[in-house]
Nucleic acid binder design. Structure first.
Lengths: 164, 164
DNA sequence: CTTACTTGCTTCGAATTCGAAGCACTTTAA
DNA sequence: TTAAAGTGCTTCGAATTCGAAGCAAGTAAG
């Protein structure tokens, strides 16, 4: 076992605190915009955006949940809401009868289009307004490293299930 | 009004996505550790930590809520739980009869001590393990800028109240 | 084939969260 | 002084979240 220091360095501490602070200030602002413009929760927006990005506008429920780092039961709930509003459809997969495939609808894409500009504006004004181009480069590079490192850990839905 | 681009640059996009991804992967990991070791939610930990940092171990409820970017009603709920476990006390302020002052107890400080080492370990392993010292410097500097920028916006609890 | 295990999703109940409304105290201004 | 407005906190109800348990379909081992 290698020697692990008891504390973080002062710089690490300030990086960590700044990260949590930015995270908890940015999120409500983004959520407010999404709710005001498209009546979407942040999760719903993420789900629609992921579906919209998918080549055929389609994803399995589990892949959706992993993509947004979200519990499966929570996804079922939000997907129900999106389905009621006819922004997505759900249908059993032909390949695997257990699977449910979610697909974004035309209305879903419309809502995305309505919400995007404001979403981008909020992110630019809050996250990027005070940064230089070099800062943005660094931020992308560094957080990209961290994200890759975190992705290496097994995804939530892969957690082994308890024996019955 | 100046010309605002319709989209974000590719680098801004990847910085934004990496940020949200790190945020949503880091948080559950931290929460799990806090719950396992100290039976604390993330919010409860933040509240205790802020109280522990305060010179006299004391803060007004509103300042606590602003500090952790949290709704006041949610704070009331969590403070009740912490008070039941006798990790904090609440008492009316002598200065202002409306105010409630929260104070961390000895037991509260003990729980903090128990939880800290693991908390730090998780943060180091997940957030910093893959970064060089220079990266950490940059991250602290850049996110510090953003946090300062965000703090400039009025805090949540300052939102004007609707007329009755 | 058939039994046991695995996987994908949903249902369920408990816990947490928020905003609106309400109560009590404080400050302002006439 | 006293009414009106502001501030600090709590209560309330609705919405969201999670994990555990359950169901159904797939897969592996004998």
């Amino acid at each position: 076992m290698t020697d692990t220091p008891v504390s973080l360095t002062p710089t690490q501490l300030s990086a960590y605190f700044a990260f949590t602070e930015v995270s908890s200030l940015l999120r409500p602002a983004v959520e407010k915009q999404l709710r005001d413009v498209g009546a979407l929760s942040y999760v719903q927006f993420q789900l629609l955006a992921r579906l919209g990005d998918s080549p055929d506008g389609t994803l399995r429920m589990t892949d959706l949940a992993d993509g947004v780092v979200y519990s499966r039961s929570g996804l079922t709930y939000q997907a129900q809401l999106l389905e009621q509003r006819e922004l997505i459809t759900r249908s059993p997969s032909p390949d695997d009868e257990r699977s449910t495939v979610a697909a974004i609808t035309g209305a879903g894409r419309e809502v995305l289009q309505e919400v995007f500009p404001g979403h981008i504006r909020v992110v630019r004004e809050l996250l990027f307004a005070s940064l230089s181009e070099a800062d943005v480069d660094d931020l992308a590079r560094i957080l990209g490293k961290v994200a890759g490192h975190l992705r290496a850990a097994p995804p939530r839905s892969a957690a082994p299930r308890r024996r019955r």
